[in-house]
């Protein structure tokens, strides 16, 4: 469980996050949505342990995130960021193996190598495995990074783990947008939760157990899968007039702009 209590974050006296209250249990796929600059990435970085709270607390499994060591945190959560620039030629496989770095000292074990091959098969990128990462397209690179993060999530330990994804589908074609989110959905279980920042409300409605809507550094609305979303929320959060259709055969809603 990630337990966020009255959390604020400010730089130069400007609040990027204000009084965030939120609990993220395992076995949940939580999607964070909001307009640009609403604080989605900042909130994700707080959960990653990269930024520290100005006020309030962030606990992972009842322990303050600041009390975890860098290595302990790397066993607890994996993070997929938005941008990767790499100055040196590395193969896709070498990048994916980095996901196993928290688990071995100098040389990867057979288990580590097997996990790398498994995630490569899972994301269907066998053809890219030995390509130079620098020559990959944006979407291909995103799949490779996702593989790396999935490899990091496969721990031999039995503790709870959290997968944090910042706009994981931004460069992907439609098929892989669905595939990636299906994988994200499939890895959540009693020991695992997934938190993803998404921009596509319809992807969020299809896959999320819960959607947090953020505006100006605060959570303004929480939508649960069983509830009906109202257009007024969309208007408030994104300042866009939308209409919502029901898709009864799929038991979900569809937002049109």
């Amino acid at each position: 469980m990630i337990d966020i209590q009255n959390l604020s974050y400010k730089i130069h006296e400007k609040y990027l996050l204000k009084n965030i209250e939120c609990k993220i249990p395992t076995n949940e796929l939580l999607v964070i949505m909001g307009a640009n600059g609403a604080g989605k990435t900042t909130l994700l970085k707080m959960m990653s342990g990269l930024l520290h709270a100005s006020n309030g607390k962030l606990l992972i499994d009842q322990k303050l995130i600041e009390e975890y060591s860098t290595l302990e945190l790397s066993h607890k959560r994996a993070v997929l960021s938005q941008h990767y620039e790499i100055a040196f030629p590395l193969t896709a496989k070498e990048i994916i193996l980095m996901g196993r770095y928290p688990y071995f000292q100098t040389n990867p074990s057979e288990v580590d190598k097997a996990i790398v091959n498994e995630v490569i098969a899972q994301m269907e990128i066998t053809k890219l495995a030995n390509r130079n990462y620098q020559t990959l397209s944006g979407g291909e690179a995103q799949k490779v990074q996702m593989c790396r993060v999935l490899a990091q999530m496969r721990g031999a330990d039995t503790q709870n783990k959290f997968l944090l994804l910042d706009e994981p589908v931004s460069h992907l074609d439609i098929k892989f947008q669905y595939q990636l989110l299906e994988i994200a959905q499939s890895i959540k279980n009693e020991k695992t939760a997934v938190v993803a920042v998404l921009h596509d409300i319809n992807l969020a409605l299809k896959f999320a157990d819960r959607i947090l809507f953020m505006k100006e550094g605060s959570i303004v609305y929480q939508h649960h899968r069983s509830e009906k979303l109202d257009v007024s929320v969309i208007k408030n959060v994104f300042d866009v007039q939308a209409s919502i259709m029901e898709l009864p055969e799929q038991n979900r809603q569809w937002v049109c702009f």
Binding site: S74, E85, P102
Partner: peptide, 23 residues
């Protein structure tokens, strides 16, 4: 050579190396 793995992770970026458990 002892830190070779850490230097590899650094290629991804400083933040990313941190996410992989490297000080």
């Amino acid at each position: 050579l002892k830190d070779a793995k850490k230097l590899n992770a650094f290629i991804l970026g400083e933040e990313e190396a941190g996410y992989l458990g490297i000080d």
